[in-house]
Simulated assay, not measured.
Amino acid sequence: MSVDVLPLDRQVCFALYTAGHAVTARYRPLLDELGLTYPQYLVLLALWEQDTRTVKDLGAALRLDSSTLSPLLKRLEAAGLVARERRRDDERSVTVRLTAEGSALRTRAAGIPARLICDGGLDIGELAELRDTLVRLTAALQRQGEIDAGALHR
Rank of each mutant, 00 (worst) to 15 (best):
L137K: 08
G150A: 06
A79T: 07
L36R: 00
T68Q: 14
A61I: 09
R84E: 00
Q142T: 03
V3C: 04
A15C: 06
T95A: 15
V94Y: 06
G120R: 00
V55L: 06
R86L: 04
D148P: 06
L31G: 10
R108D: 04
T18F: 05
D4L: 11
D90L: 06
A15W: 09
A46D: 07
L81D: 03
A60F: 07
R92F: 09
Y41R: 09
L98Q: 06
P113R: 02
P29A: 06
L98M: 03
V23P: 00
L116G: 02
E77F: 05
L141D: 08
R136W: 10
L30E: 02
L72N: 07
P7K: 04
L73Q: 00
S67T: 11
A149S: 06
Y41L: 02
P7W: 03
H21L: 14
T99S: 02
L58D: 06
T18C: 08
R28V: 04
R87W: 13
E146G: 12
L44K: 07
K56Y: 11
S2R: 15
R143V: 13
L76T: 05
T24Y: 08
R28P: 05
T24N: 14
A139D: 10
D90P: 00
F14I: 08
A139K: 08
G20P: 00
L76F: 11
A25E: 11
E126G: 06
A61C: 01
K74A: 14
A149W: 09
F14S: 03
L36Q: 00
L141A: 10
L34R: 09
T138D: 13
V96D: 10
K74H: 13
L36A: 02
P71R: 05
R63T: 12
P113F: 02
F14L: 12
R108V: 04
R28N: 00
T107P: 01
V43I: 08
S103N: 12
V43F: 09
F14Y: 11
Y27N: 03
R108Q: 11
H21D: 10
V5K: 03
K74Y: 12
V3T: 10
V23S: 07
T68E: 13
L127C: 01
L8F: 11
L127V: 02
W48G: 05
